[in-house]
């Protein structure tokens, strides 16, 4: 039971978090009528009568996308973790991300609810039974984040803004790629919790590490959010350790004091990185490129001088 609690905590550390970075919100677009059909992230084609006008977001990354597309005034409900941009936190709360209050959602009369695969077992069918349109998105790669932005743009008649945002993100990703191309790839251990939960294949963090010019030591694990043993980490001898659990209390000093860790190259050479603002690497939303740029600098300080 304890293990599972830790796993949940680790998952939350990945999926949630807090951050303060600026975002541009272009506010244009005249509502057009006519049905809109878009395939969601799990292969269901969702049809709206017309552009969504009353939107509830069940995840912080969806909220950030909506605001980045200038749709803040169409958002009628968010979760307690939706803290970016700051005005999103002023919206009515419909839940704490894992548990969603059905009567709040229904009572706010949304014409579109943006959910994640976390909600598919319970909340999604419960909402659909009550006639509410639910669109599931759970991007687990940087490309999938770009697709999410485009899909949300289609549902809301903000295709142009979505394309502009995606083009901007693609340009920044390409710039990073250009820099790190050909450079030796440091081995990276991404710590999600002191129990050594990490990001494995099939997670957007794994994608992020690769794009930033690193090599995830857990890339050969058997699940997206695996738990490694201390021995495995010492054996892998990572060049860089990223403390994505810094906000949960882990520090460079604490890592140095862990028995056996002083021999790991990252610890010896002082390449243990505390991530103070973990939202930019834990939310598969528009600010993921900021996380990517941060990581590329951390992995390749010499290339970014």
């Amino acid at each position: 039971m304890k293990k599972s609690v830790l796993l949940v905590a680790a998952a939350l550390a990945v999926l949630l978090g807090g951050c303060v970075c600026p975002a541009q919100a272009p506010a244009t677009g005249v509502p057009t009528s006519g049905p809109i059909s878009v395939e969601d992230g799990v292969g269901n084609v969702i049809t709206l009568e017309s552009e969504a006008q009353r939107i509830i977001s069940l995840a912080p990354n969806h909220t950030e996308i909506l605001y980045a597309l200038g749709l803040g005034d169409r958002v009628v409900g968010v979760t307690e973790y939706c803290n970016y941009p700051p005005e999103a936190a002023e919206k009515p709360k419909v839940g704490d991300f894992i548990t969603i209050d059905l009567e709040q959602v229904v009572g706010l009369e949304p014409d579109l609810v943006l959910a994640t695969t976390m909600h598919m077992a319970e909340t999604v069918p419960a909402l659909q039974e009550r006639g509410i349109v639910v669109f599931v998105l759970d991007p687990q790669s940087v490309v999938a984040v770009l697709e999410s932005i485009q899909k949300i743009g289609q549902l809301t008649g903000r295709e142009d803004e979505a394309e502009a945002l995606v083009a901007d993100m693609q340009a920044r990703i390409a710039a990073v790629q250009e820099k790190v191309q050909g450079a030796p790839r440091p081995k990276v251990f991404w710590e999600l919790g002191p129990e050594l939960f990490t990001a494995g294949p099939g997670s957007f963090v794994n994608d992020l590490i690769t794009l930033a010019g690193g090599e995830n030591v857990a890339a050969d694990a058997d699940s997206p959010w695996p738990q490694l043993s201390v021995e495995a980490i010492i054996l892998k001898d990572p060049d860089v350790i990223v403390l994505a659990d810094h906000n949960y209390g882990q520090t460079v000093e604490m890592v140095k004091e862990r028995p056996g860790w002083e021999d790991i190259r990252a610890v010896r050479e002082g390449n243990v990185i505390e991530i103070a603002d973990d939202d930019i690497v834990s939310r598969p939303g528009p600010r993921l490129v900021e996380g990517l740029e941060f990581l590329a600098r951390a992995f390749h300080p010499d290339l970014f001088e």
């Binding site: 949940v8 998952a11 894992i98 058997d222 997206p224």
Partner: peptide, 11 residues
């Protein structure tokens, strides 16, 4: 080892 399933079981 899947956060979403674990949360579901715990709940």
């Amino acid at each position: 080892r899947d956060a979403f399933r674990t949360v579901h079981v715990l709940g």
